[in-house]
Amino acid sequence: MRIDPSTPVPIFQQIADGIRGAVAAGVYRAGDLIPSVRAQALTLLVNPNTVQRAYEQLERDGLIACKKGVGMVVCNESIASARNGVDQAMRMLLEQVVQYARSAEINRTSVDRLYRDAWNQSDKRGQSR
């Protein structure tokens, strides 16, 4: 997980997304302990309060929970975490698309059109689900 302060995405959001991505990729499985606020802050070189904020968001979303005497663990509801993970990975990809569109000055209507074209192409190739 890398934090890039120069992008407009807030740092706490980058951390939360990073952990979601890690869960989706299987780096953290249900029941696994994630690094403490302080350890995470030191590894990423960010303010511990920012990590705290990210963890609070993940806790609210049900991805992690605080286990007394142990630390923050990934929740056992594997469906929730898997869905969250996949949704989050998708979200991250789409954010990249949006960022690219912005920097390449492609407006929203054009992106929608290109997106629909991509789906249609994929359908034609018989890869529809």
């Binding site: 934090i3 302060p5 120069s6 740092i11 990423l44 070189l45 960010v46 303010n47 309060n49 920012t50």
Partner: peptide
């Protein structure tokens, strides 16, 4: 280095 300030500062 504003990136450092953004990461570390309260």
């Amino acid at each position: 280095t504003l990136a450092d300030v953004e990461r570390l500062a309260d």
